[in-house]
Write a protein that binds this DNA or RNA. Structure first.
Lengths: 261, 261
DNA sequence: CAGTGGTCTAGACCACACT
DNA sequence: GTGTGGTCTAGACCACTGC
């Protein structure tokens, strides 16, 4: 790789043993892709440190500043975590301060009842053929095997969230209710540790609905209590959808908090 | 400012004619504050270009790279917009692609009815003394003058959003229903142009609720139709709250879309 | 063409963590 | 002290815009 002429990266393949991308992009973007590749292939595991900036600069034959810019972006995407003086680490859903990164439901200000950790209760966990809508959301063929997990989250003994979770069958082979129930800690941490699947980003669509009879029963509310319906699609590497989740939230002691920038 | 020893910024005031902050912080953070100050004082108006990176570097007696890092952050916060080859501009809510930056309600996939621009209808606009909850949200004293604006937004002739908007009286002196109605374009663009007030970030709390009789009437729904209640607090410079808005959204043809990263 | 932001490098020093 | 990430500089060249 010719350091002073990044535009030649596409043309001069002979001189670029590390990179092979035919399309032009800034060097730091290419580095970013390479690091991403190593992450996806599991060269570095969640929680582990990755090589130092100088090591990576040497490996990829670029300057430390270029590696830095690549890592900066990956850190902003929460794929890596920088710790001054220690190193750069592969991010994990198991860390205390990023637990429930995707859960935006917060207890109302001054509400005592709803404090503390959530109690989880698995309602059931079945393996079945994907219904049409599930298949479409997860980019599977209709009828492909999927897991359906249903659970209730309670805060201070008040059942507050009911979720219907759909997971593709192949990557989650071996999932059972027992395995889910045994686990304390966030579900995404279990996915990471047990199945090597990292949820990187998600998209939620919210609506206000009335509960179905089942939902009303499980959440112990009247049939005409408005609930927040949260449809979440989570993605892993390559923007591959890996989880489809329909949740209904009680909002009598909680609210969905969103920061707009 | 001694370029090679940023740590001395606090000690060596004699050599730092531009900066006077006693507390230590990285140089680029100090530059960021200075640029922010110029923005807030109106030295550069929304839509205008700010001086080039080299000019700013000369003004603040730092290297161009340091200015760059400061501007990078301000651009990520949507305070500035970079345009390669042209310059860096003060961001504005009037630009096409950032209109409705804070409106997360989107038409459902494949919904024809709800396409196109929103029709706005001001229901009323009154000046009155701040109720307790409004005063608290806007960090005013109870009884301070505030404006209350109520309006309905419709999509394809379907009334979809009803909003109750509270604004502090002093900064918005002279606001009238007529002035609001005359305006096409986003309300935040009007605030910018007419009152010199820029909304920089906001925080929304969502709940599912049943409509009040008024709301049901204005949105033309039955009294038991669940609605999405969106409580938004918007901030201007210095994290000063400048608008408190309670909206109720119909979600039969729309959904609230949120990206989680 | 000149002027702007965007990328890349090389080298220096600071702040922090571990040993 | 050594090694890590964090900041800052100076200078080069690239990519885009508009004269």
């Amino acid at each position: 790789m010719n350091p002073s002429t990044p535009a030649e990266n596409s043309a001069e393949l002979a001189d670029t043993p590390v990179l092979a991308s035919p399309a032009f992009s800034p060097l730091y973007q290419q580095i970013k892709s390479l690091v991403l590749q190593s992450l996806q292939l599991g060269e570095w595991k969640p929680g582990d440190p990755i090589p130092s900036e100088f090591e990576l600069a040497a490996r990829y034959k670029v300057s430390q500043g270029t590696v830095r810019k690549a890592i900066d972006e990956l850190a902003k995407n929460h794929l890596l975590v920088r710790r001054q003086g220690k190193g750069t680490f592969v991010a994990t859903h198991a860390e205390q301060h990023v637990q429930f990164r995707f859960l935006k439901l917060k207890p109302d200000d001054g509400d005592i009842i709803s404090q503390g950790p959530a109690q989880r209760q698995i309602v059931d966990c079945k393996r079945l053929k994907a219904p049409k809508d599930v298949a479409q959301a997860l980019a599977l063929a209709s009828g492909d095997p999927v897991f359906q997990v249903r659970r209730v989250l309670s805060f201070g003994a008040v059942p507050t969230i009911y979720e219907d979770i759909w997971l593709p069958g192949a990557p989650f082979k071996g999932l059972t209710a027992e395995r889910l129930s045994r686990d304390t800690g966030p579900m995404y941490a279990l996915f990471e540790a047990e199945f090597g699947i990292r949820m990187l980003r998600a998209q939620e669509k919210l609506r206000a609905v009335n509960p179905t009879p089942d939902e009303a029963h499980l959440l112990q509310v009247a049939g005409n209590t408005p609930l927040l319906r949260v449809e979440r699609l989570s993605f892993t590497y390559q923007d591959t959808p890996m989880e489809w989740r329909i949740g209904v939230y009680r909002t009598d002691h909680h609210h969905y908090l969103n920061e707009l920038n």
